[in-house]
Every structure is written in C-alpha cells, then in structure tokens.
Measured scan of single mutants.
Amino acid sequence: MSIQHFRVALIPFFAAFCLPVFAHPETLVKVKDAEDQLGARVGYIELDLNSGKILESFRPEERFPMMSTFKVLLCGAVLSRVDAGQEQLGRRIHYSQNDLVEYSPVTEKHLTDGMTVRELCSAAITMSDNTAANLLLTTIGGPKELTAFLHNMGDHVTRLDRWEPELNEAIPNDERDTTMPAAMATTLRKLLTGELLTLASRQQLIDWMEADKVAGPLLRSALPAGWFIADKSGAGERGSRGIIAALGPDGKPSRIVVIYTTGSQATMDERNRQIAEIGASLIKHW
C-alpha cells in the first residue's frame, strides 16, 4: 500500500482519535458579512469528516447552483462504474471539434489522439474542462443518470439537468442544476469515506481534487503551510461562485467545507476574496 493510499485508508482512524471539535460562531459572522459585502445569498456548511456531524452552517438547506462543483460527483459516478466493471479508466475516447464547448483548455489539445477516461476526469476536476465533463456525462448516460446515481446514494436534493455550459445559467428560483450545502457536503463525505467506492477509487477521487489547479484564489489562499486540501470550485452566471473541499491540518483532511453564493453584482475577484476570507476565519478558529 502506498503512503497516499495509507493516508486515505486511515482518515477515519486518525479522526477518531482527534480531540473533540467545537464550532466557532466567528466564522458564521464572516459568512454573514460576506453576504453584506456581496449583496447576495451565501450558503455555508462545515462537517466533521469522521462523524458527519454538522459543526457550523448557514442557509444549509437553500438551493444554490452547483456550477462546476458537480464534476466531482460526476467522476465519482464514473469511478463507481469502474468498480462495477462497467468502465475502464484506460479506455480512450475520441471526439471532434464539434464536441468542444466553451472553456476546454485540455480537451482542445487532444482532438487528434483523444483522451482516456482517467485523463478526462483529471481534466474535468483539476482544470474544470467543460468538454471533458460533457464527454464523461455521455459515458454514464447524461445528466439524468448522474441525478439517479445521487438518488441511489441517498441524495434526493442534488440534481443535474443540463450539460456544460448551460448548467451554469443560475436563474433565480430555478431548481435545475442545483444542490443544497448540506446535501453536497453529505454526498461528498460519502464519496470520500464511505463504502460506495473502493479504496482505490476513493484515493483516485481525492487525488484529482488535491491536484486542483484553478481554485488557488479561494480556500487555498488562506491555508497555512502543512495543511491538506482537496477541492473543486465552480463559477456561473449572475454572480455565482462555489467551492467544495476536504481539508485539515497535519497533512490530512478532517472536515468537509461547502460554500456557495449566487445573485451578486460583485466582480469575480471580490467573490473570490470573500470566500478566501471565510476560509481564513475557519482556519483561525479551527
């Protein structure tokens, strides 16, 4: 067993022997301040990774656009098919120029040779490549099948209805392509620590998230040296922004954090800054 596999296998073990965790309302004060600064709703939840206990939450059962955070769930569904012998990570998928959609920095470079399922998941999570996500959605049967996968996990809230990039439209009061912070946090925890996926697939999923290259201005910008984070960000229309993450000190994750916002007129930089400040408060009061 590799060191990384050992780390993920012992996530519940280490967490069980940690000192009790206590909620700190100071972080919620910052979440509410972010709402004021952005002029928009902000949803927040913080779960203990081992027990699933909610440590703090704000608007945990209000719907927010998922945006690209759905790509972690998508690759979880792909990995479940791999575990069941219905898919192979090494299978190569070929596609054409007509398949390319807006923001496809990886797939646009491989029109000639195609990409493997493993490479597509890596591109979808680490670079948020939209064509990679659409190609992977095709392998599982489309958005409705991802929703069905989530329902089978016990998540009857999260739903995907459309493809990239239309799913980022974020129309107010439109339930399409949305989740709730509580539902997303619980589902992410199941994917990373539950028995739904094999140990190898859980490790692969967290490795992809740990290698995320496009979430630097968010929670990662607030992390002290030595902290662990595996995350996936999302951005959408109407001032929408979000991030889902597993993080913790001492090089291992111990909490799940989900943050979503929508309806702001603020710039992307300002949305990023507010999420980073929430992260800084979380870490300060850990």
Rank of each mutant, 00 (worst) to 15 (best):
K53Y: 13
T27A: 06
R271F: 04
R92F: 10
H5L: 10
A245G: 09
L100A: 04
L192W: 08
P25K: 10
F14L: 09
T27F: 04
A225Q: 15
Q4A: 12
H110R: 10
W286T: 01
A40H: 04
E56T: 11
S57P: 02
W227N: 01
K252R: 13
W208P: 00
L218C: 05
A23V: 04
L135W: 02
C18V: 07
D250K: 14
H5T: 12
L146K: 00
V257E: 02
K213Y: 09
E175I: 14
S254A: 15
Y260D: 00
R63T: 09
F17W: 10
G226N: 12
D177V: 01
G39Q: 11
A246H: 04
S128T: 01
L111R: 08
G226T: 12
A200V: 10
E56H: 08
P249I: 06
V106T: 07
Y44V: 07
D155H: 01
V21K: 06
D177S: 02
N168M: 06
E35L: 02
R176E: 07
N98Y: 14
E166F: 13
R273Q: 10
H24P: 06
G236T: 05
D33L: 12
A77T: 08
A215P: 05
M153L: 14
F13L: 12
G52F: 05
T187D: 11
L146S: 01
T261W: 04
K144F: 15
P249V: 06
E237L: 13
L89T: 06
Q204C: 13
T178L: 02
L205W: 03
R118S: 15
Q203A: 12
G251H: 14
G248C: 02
E62A: 09
R59E: 03
L197D: 03
T158D: 01
E164S: 00
L38S: 08
V31M: 08
I229G: 02
A215W: 02
L120S: 03
L89E: 06
D174Y: 03
E62Q: 08
E277N: 11
L55A: 06
E210F: 10
K144Q: 14
G76V: 05
W208K: 01
E46W: 04
L73F: 08
S221R: 12
A230G: 12
G251E: 11
K284D: 14
V29Q: 14
G194Y: 08
G114A: 05
R91C: 04
L150C: 11
D155I: 01
M180T: 14
D231C: 04
G263L: 06
L111N: 06
L120N: 02
S80H: 14
E270D: 14
H156G: 15
D161E: 08
D269S: 13
T126E: 11
L10F: 10
T186P: 08
D36Y: 12
R63L: 08
D231R: 03
F228L: 06
E270I: 13
E61S: 12
G90L: 10
S104I: 02
E145A: 14
S233H: 01
Q4I: 12
T116M: 06
S240L: 02
E46G: 05
L150E: 02
K252T: 12
V106A: 10
